[in-house]
Computed example of a mutant assay.
Amino acid sequence: MTIEQQDTAATPSRAWRTVLEHIEARLIAGDLAPGDRLPGERALSTDLGVGRSSVREALRVLEAMGLIRTATGSGPNAGAIIIAMPGGAMSSLMRLQVAARGFPVRDIVRTRLTLEASVVGELADAAPARDLADADRLLDAMDDDDLTPAEFLALDAQFHLALAEASGNQVITATMAGLRGGIEAYALDGLARIADWASTRGRLRGEHRGVVDAIRATDAALARTRIHDHISGYYAEISLGD
Rank of each mutant, 00 (worst) to 15 (best):
M1I: 15
D7Q: 09
A9S: 14
A9C: 12
S13P: 12
R14S: 15
E21P: 13
H22W: 12
I28F: 15
R37K: 12
L38H: 07
P39V: 14
P39C: 14
G40E: 09
E41Y: 14
R42Y: 15
L44Y: 11
S45L: 07
T46V: 15
L48Q: 08
S54D: 05
L59E: 09
R60K: 11
M65C: 12
N77D: 14
N77F: 09
N77M: 12
A78I: 02
G79F: 02
M90W: 10
R95Q: 09
L96W: 13
L96N: 15
A99Y: 10
A99R: 13
F103Y: 13
F103E: 09
R110P: 00
L115H: 01
E116W: 00
S118I: 00
S118Q: 11
V119L: 06
V120G: 06
G121Q: 02
G121H: 03
A124R: 03
R137P: 04
L139Q: 10
L139W: 02
M142Y: 04
D145W: 07
D146L: 11
D146P: 03
T148G: 08
A150Y: 01
L155W: 05
L155T: 01
L161C: 10
E165N: 10
S167N: 09
N169P: 02
A174S: 10
A177D: 12
A177K: 14
R180L: 10
I183C: 00
Y186H: 10
L188V: 07
D189W: 08
D189P: 03
G190I: 04
L191G: 04
I194Y: 01
W197K: 08
S199N: 05
R205H: 08
G206R: 05
G206Q: 06
V212I: 09
D213R: 14
A214M: 02
A214I: 06
I215E: 00
D219Y: 07
A220T: 00
T225Y: 01
Y234E: 06
S239Y: 08
G241D: 14
G241R: 14
G241N: 15
